[in-house]
Design a protein around this nucleic acid. Structure first.
Ligand code: MN
Ligand code: MN
Ligand code: ZN
Ligand code: ZN
Lengths: 138, 138
DNA sequence: TGTTTCATGCAACGGAAGTGCAATTATTGC
DNA sequence: GCAATAATTGCACTTCCGTTGCATGAAACA
C-alpha cells in the first residue's frame, strides 16, 4: 500500500486506480487544475468520472475548489492538516493574466476584515490578478 | 435633459430610452444585479440588449462587474469619481448565503497584500460570504 | 458464490455568456 | 426635409462548463 493509497483511505475514499492517478496528477502539478485540464491529461477517462472524483475529493477535504474569477472552477490539493473552511486556513490565490495559471499562496492568509454592523462573515475569497513569477521573468 | 441623461453623455454613452431605464433600475437597487434579474425586470426588452447595455456601461466605467463566487456576473453602479481598476478604489463585496444578494462595501477597501518575489499585482477581488445585515436580524 | 454497495461510462440537460446578422432607430450632411 | 450613414436593438443560434439519470462494471461483503 503506497502513501497515496493510505492518504485516500485516511480521508475515507476508496483508492481506486483512477483516483490514485488523479491524485498523483494533482500532486505533481504546482498549479490549480480545471476539469478541462484533467480531460486533456486523461483522454481515456470519462469527463464525468473526473468530475465526480474531484467532487468526492472536495467533499472529503482532499482538494479545495478555487474560484479565480475566470468562471472556471479549479482544484488544488489541500495542505496536510488544513481546515479549508476555517478562517485561519483561508489563503489567497494568484491568477496570472499572462499564462492563465492559478496558484495557491498558502503562506499568505486572508487578512481579517472588519465588517459593518449586522454582517456576519463565514467565508472569504481573495484573488490577486497580475503577472506571476515565471512570466515576470524574475 | 435629466441628470441621468447628462451622466450617460458625460461617460460617452448615448442616452437612449432603454439605457436610461436600465440606469434607473441599477440606481434604485442597492444590491448587485445579474443579467437574469434584468430580464425579469424588463420582460419586454431583449436579453441581448440588456447584456450589451451592461457591457457598454462597464466599458465606459458606469458600472463595475462583480464576481461574487456564484458564477453569475453581477453589476453595480460605480461611485461618482471612482477609478474601478485603481488599487485604491478596489472595495470588497459581500455575498449573503441566505438571501443570495451581493452588495458593494465601498467604504471597505481591499488591504494591500505583500506578494512573493516576482509576482506583480494588477488587480484584486475580495468577496466575503456570510449573513447580511438584513438576514442577521440586526 | 451470491448479494449488495460503490465506481465508472455514456448520454443528455441546463444555465449563462457570447456572436452574426437583419431590422429598426437615431444622427449627420446636404 | 430627405437621403445617407452610423448606432442600437431584437432574434436566432452557438459554445462552454457544470451537472444529473441511468445502465454497466468492479469491488467488498456475508
Ligand atoms: Mn488554494
Ligand atoms: Mn462593488
Ligand atoms: Zn504566468
Ligand atoms: Zn441576506
Amino acid at each position: 500500500m503506497t502513501d497515496i493509497e493510505k492518504t485516500l483511505e485516511n480521508k475515507g475514499v476508496r483508492p481506486t486506480a483512477m483516483r490514485i492517478l488523479i491524485y498523483k496528477y494533482l500532486a505533481e502539478k504546482e498549479v490549480a487544475i480545471a476539469l478541462t485540464d484533467m480531460e486533456n491529461a486523461f483522454s481515456k477517462a470519462d469527463r464525468t468520472t473526473l468530475y465526480r472524483t474531484l467532487k468526492t475529493f472536495e467533499e472529503k477535504r482532499i482538494v479545495h475548489q478555487i474560484d479565480d474569477g475566470t468562471n472556471i472552477s479549479k482544484y488544488a490539493l489541500c495542505e496536510p492538516g488544513c481546515n479549508c473552511e476555517m478562517e485561519q486556513d483561508l489563503h489567497l490565490h494568484f491568477h496570472c493574466d499572462n499564462c492563465d495559471e492559478t496558484v495557491c499562496l498558502t503562506e499568505h492568509k486572508i487578512p481579517h476584515i472588519n465588517l459593518p454592523d449586522g454582517y456576519v462573515a463565514e467565508n472569504a475569497n481573495l484573488v490577486i490578478k497580475g503577472i506571476c513569477d515565471k512570466c515576470s521573468g524574475q
